[in-house]
Amino acid sequence: MTVRVLLVDDQEMIRAGLRMVLESQSGVEIVAEADDGDTALELVATVETDVVLMDVRMPRMNGVEATGAITGLDDPPKVLILTTFDLDEYAYDGLRAGASGFLLKDTPVEELATAIRHVHAGDAVVAPSTTRRLLSHFARSRPGQTSAAPTTRLEELTPREHDVLAHIARGLSNSEIADQLGLAEGTVKVHVGRILTKLDLRDRVQAVVLAYETGLIRAGGA
Results as ranks from 00 to 15, higher is better:
202 R>C: 00
63 G>L: 02
191 H>F: 13
217 I>A: 03
100 S>P: 08
14 I>M: 15
63 G>Q: 01
4 R>M: 03
8 V>N: 05
215 G>R: 07
15 R>Q: 09
1 M>P: 09
141 S>D: 15
198 K>T: 05
216 L>C: 06
183 L>V: 02
63 G>W: 02
157 L>W: 00
222 A>E: 15
121 A>F: 03
32 A>P: 08
7 L>Q: 01
3 V>L: 00
200 D>L: 14
119 V>T: 00
20 M>W: 02
14 I>Q: 15
73 L>H: 11
81 I>D: 03
181 L>N: 02
1 M>L: 13
102 F>P: 04
36 D>G: 05
22 L>Y: 01
23 E>S: 15
222 A>T: 15
176 E>Y: 04
201 L>W: 11
200 D>V: 13
11 Q>C: 07
138 F>R: 10
67 T>C: 01
14 I>Y: 11
39 T>I: 15
102 F>N: 08
172 L>E: 10
131 T>R: 13
133 R>M: 14
176 E>A: 14
49 T>Y: 04
108 P>S: 08
88 D>A: 12
137 H>W: 12
111 E>C: 09
152 T>K: 03
174 N>W: 06
175 S>E: 11
112 L>E: 15
163 D>Q: 14
176 E>T: 09
33 E>W: 09
76 P>M: 03
187 T>W: 02
74 D>G: 05
9 D>W: 04
51 V>M: 12
81 I>M: 05
58 M>E: 00
137 H>A: 11
78 K>M: 15
93 D>R: 08
89 E>F: 09
221 G>H: 11
45 A>M: 14
198 K>F: 02
111 E>Y: 07
103 L>N: 08
10 D>V: 05
4 R>K: 10
178 A>S: 13
106 D>Q: 12
171 G>L: 06
207 A>Y: 02
45 A>Y: 09
27 G>N: 08
205 V>D: 09
31 V>Q: 09
152 T>L: 10
48 E>M: 13
131 T>A: 14
156 E>C: 04
165 L>V: 03
65 E>L: 05
56 V>H: 00
50 D>S: 02
55 D>P: 05
130 T>I: 12
160 R>S: 12
126 V>P: 07
193 G>I: 05
150 P>V: 04
96 R>H: 12
37 G>E: 01
144 G>K: 04
151 T>E: 15
19 R>I: 01
158 T>N: 03
39 T>K: 15
33 E>S: 07
8 V>W: 01
125 V>I: 15
214 T>Y: 06
132 R>I: 14
38 D>P: 06
82 L>F: 04
178 A>E: 13
65 E>R: 05
124 A>D: 06
178 A>L: 10
176 E>W: 03
140 R>F: 13
1 M>H: 13
199 L>A: 08
112 L>R: 15
14 I>S: 14
139 A>F: 04
122 G>R: 06
105 K>D: 06
137 H>D: 11
221 G>D: 15
128 P>D: 05
164 V>P: 09
211 A>F: 07
141 S>Q: 15
101 G>K: 12
123 D>F: 10
88 D>G: 09
17 G>Y: 11
26 S>K: 14
120 H>F: 05
137 H>I: 02
67 T>L: 05
162 H>W: 12
5 V>R: 09
202 R>G: 08
